[in-house]
Nucleic acid binder design. Structure first.
Ligand code: MN
Ligand code: MN
Ligand code: ZN
Ligand code: ZN
Lengths: 143, 143
DNA sequence: TGATTAGTTGAAACCTAGTATCATTTAAAA
DNA sequence: TTTTAAATGATACTAGGTTTCAACTAATCA
């Protein structure tokens, strides 16, 4: 069963940073607010353009903190900069529209069950997995 | 059922290039031979280091031709350069050892079946998918 | 409250991975 | 052979990101 995960839940990235023991600074307020107001996924460079008064280094550092803390997903894009999106649930996978780049999150119980069954069959110890489904999203199909 | 795919089958990357209509040049002979003699996966920079007499531009161009032709897999590594490996079967997935970086290829019938079943459930039209399983390989576990 | 201090910032320099340019060379057809 | 379009590779450039470090500031403390 596919469970699509969407929209604006409480996330407060700033609190995540404070919980790690980092200071509440104006740069961090600006970066986290911008991310939370961007309902879609984004790249680091987009964030830099949206926040011209925050230094590049700080934008990148803040993103890294949030990824390390598990509050942001970093997903590799084969040609180009990785995309980031707020991680609303612990473990999930992504749909990526190859036309417009929009990213969706979902969980799939059968996939997870299959993964667990693989542990007996794969040579070595499984420590994790990643899955992306490439789509043309309904919005792009409608055009 | 997991089908692990391994070892040295006939692949002749050079022939792939000629089949696309590209000329047989000494640079292309060198690059394809080096790839075929590297039984493991590799990065573009590794290949450049192994072939100091072939220009960087040519190494990158040759890799791109081979990827476009489907003879090489390009797989994204979250921090760093993508890895390449010879594509021995049409569609497959990868295991990546997070310790030594070695890449394995496998097919999994159940995963593919699940993918097809997802088409009804995901919003949009599915055009493809990607899956990587992160492992500590048996070689690294043995150390 | 103001003094202290360790954490934070951001301009600039740097780095890695990869692409574009273009004069020279070469494969392959004629 | 001669011809010529394709290929090469040195060099310059770009994108994405990190390091450095002097200046700044948030949080703690007297
Ligand atoms: Mn999963
Ligand atoms: Mn598959
Ligand atoms: Zn789309
Ligand atoms: Zn390993």
């Amino acid at each position: 069963m596919v469970v699509e995960i969407d929209g604006m839940q409480e996330s407060n990235l700033l609190t995540t940073l404070e919980d790690i023991g980092l200071r509440k600074t104006s740069a961090r307020v600006a970066v986290t607010a911008q991310i939370e107001n961007t309902s879609d996924s984004f790249t680091a460079e987009q964030l830099c353009r949206d926040l011209p008064y925050v230094g590049r280094a700080t934008v990148y550092r803040t993103i890294r903190h949030l990824v390390d803390a598990g509050a942001l997903c970093k997903l590799p894009i084969l040609d180009g900069a990785p995309m980031y999106s707020i991680a609303r649930v612990e473990h999930h996978h992504h749909t990526i529209c190859t036309k417009c780049g929009s990213v969706g999150e979902f969980r799939h119980t059968t996939v997870e069950r299959v993964m667990r069954s693989l542990e007996k069959e794969i040579d070595g110890r499984i420590t994790g997995h990643r899955m992306e489904i490439f789509i043309i999203c309904s919005k792009c199909l409608a055009e």
